[in-house]
């Protein structure tokens, strides 16, 4: 944990302190603190975890243990347009795997990673509860339903000219 790759700005540290304080620096509020921190920073790298540990007066190992336990928390930055493919059972039986393969093939990144230009990242999620629209893909907050392998190109095309 000593090799610092990312140097947090003073204002970032200050923000984290504020978040921790808003939960009275209580160790039991760790998950809520992490939710807020991820909401603000987009991801939870080791450096952020260290500040959180310090503020809540708990070992960094415990923070790391919690961050890696829950799938909602990520230590890697997501793409500007995070793509989430639902791989819940309903989507699976309606062909989600083929859709996922097509995204991986076109973007040339595996699940959990971000394209070199930082534009797209691919993640899988389990059930957004829109099973009537299976298979479902989300790009950011936008939901696409009944996606086919052909539809993958169409979806990506929408973001072609976006930065």
């Amino acid at each position: 944990m000593t090799s610092v790759k990312l140097k947090l700005k003073d204002s970032d540290v200050q923000k984290l302190k504020e978040i921790a304080l808003s939960f009275n620096n209580e160790a039991g509020e760790l998950i809520n603190v992490l939710h807020k921190a991820q909401e603000h920073f987009g991801y939870l790298p080791a450096e952020i975890q260290e500040v959180v540990a310090e503020e809540l007066n708990i070992p960094v190992a415990k923070v790391y243990g919690v961050v890696t336990f829950y799938s909602f928390f990520t230590m890697l930055p997501r793409g500007r347009y995070p793509i989430s493919i639902c791989t819940g059972t309903a989507c699976y039986v309606r062909g989600a795997e083929k859709v996922l393969d097509e995204f991986k093939r076109i973007l040339k990144v595996p699940v959990g990673e971000t394209t070199a230009d930082g534009k797209f990242s691919i993640t899988c999620l389990r059930c957004v509860g829109a099973c009537g629209l299976a298979p479902v893909v989300m790009v950011g907050d936008k939901t696409y339903g009944r996606v086919t392998t052909d539809g993958v190109k169409e979806i990506l095309k929408e973001y072609e000219n976006e930065e």
């Binding site: 809520n32 939710h35 919690v66």
Partner: peptide, 22 residues
């Protein structure tokens, strides 16, 4: 708030999660 863990549907796991633990 949960943070995405199927096992937290189990009541003892859920309680630990509410306490800020794994």
């Amino acid at each position: 708030y949960g943070a995405g863990a199927f096992v937290c549907g189990e009541e003892t796991a859920l309680i630990h999660s509410m306490e800020g633990e794994r």
